[in-house]
């Protein structure tokens, strides 16, 4: 599904190398987790993959189902099936949540040469999916993320994911700022989307999200590289011993 080979990335504005040769393959239907200390390059990886400005790929490649996504505009990556759940979802005053989602869904369909979804069908679908995430009609009507609590913002990200039905989902620290109940709700939303060939890359600081979203593979990232890969037990090791041991081991 997602293939990253020897990816080197530096900041555009300053001569600072952030990713120093990331190799990673997420297979269809699998959930991979990336853990790592602050500043290891986890979020940069998510931004580079989704096409945010400010980063320069100096070496390597990233493909989604064989297509070079690094050459695509952000909207083209989305239409190709890539989705990033933001660590800090952006507030957009004046744009209704519902309008935003319908515009996005139809823009992607249009880009893929599919027919636009009718207003009635869309409404039916979004009500159903919002309900599962305990997102009420009021939240759908409000401006995108404006006045939402931290938990509401993250649930709104998952709702977008559910509506856009991407092939490859990247979750960037989706657990940050969530209490246990909110995290469970978000995890349930993600779990509902698992399977049927969809790939997940869950970026997180802590193991606790992985209690709820069980990964197939866990990677440890440090200083711009994947330094260790293992099964779910690797996350527990981090939880118990911190990163220091692992980093010392690979150093």
């Amino acid at each position: 599904m997602l293939n990253i080979k020897n990816l080197h990335v530096k900041l555009e504005e300053e001569d600072k190398q952030i990713l120093k040769g990331v190799d990673l393959t997420v297979e269809a239907g699998k959930v991979h987790a990336i853990m790592g200390p602050n500043g290891s390059g986890k979020s940069t990886l998510s931004y580079v993959l989704s096409g945010r400005d400010g980063y320069e790929v100096t070496e390597g490649e990233a493909t989604l189902e064989g297509a070079d996504i690094l050459e695509m505009e952000p909207e083209e990556r989305a239409a190709a099936g890539l989705f990033l759940a933001f660590q800090y979802p952006v507030e957009i005053p004046g744009v209704g949540n519902m309008t935003f989602l319908r515009t996005a869904v139809n823009a992607q369909r249009k880009a893929r040469g599919e027919e636009e979804v009718s207003a009635a069908d869309f409404l039916k679908l979004i009500r159903e999916r919002a309900k599962a995430l305990k997102i009420d009609a009021e939240m759908l009507k409000r401006a995108v993320n404006v006045g939402f609590s931290g938990g509401e913002k993250k649930r709104n990200e998952i709702l977008q994911m559910a509506m856009l039905e991407p092939k490859m989902c990247i979750l960037d620290e989706t657990d940050s700022g969530l209490d246990v109940d909110a995290m469970k709700l978000v995890a349930e939303g993600v779990n509902a989307l698992r399977g049927t060939g969809r790939g997940f890359l869950v970026i997180t600081h802590y193991q606790r999200l992985l209690d709820h979203i069980k990964p197939d593979v866990v990677h440890i990232m440090a200083d711009g590289r994947i330094v260790k890969t293992g099964g779910p037990e690797l996350a527990l090791e981090v939880e118990n011993n911190g990163y220091a041991d692992i980093l010392a081991e690979v150093a």
Binding site: G51, E73, E75, F83, F86, V105, A107, Q108, L164
Partner: peptide, 9 residues
């Protein structure tokens, strides 16, 4: 960027 990342040109 947020809008574009959701597929809006």
């Amino acid at each position: 960027f947020y809008l574009r990342s959701r597929g809006v040109p």
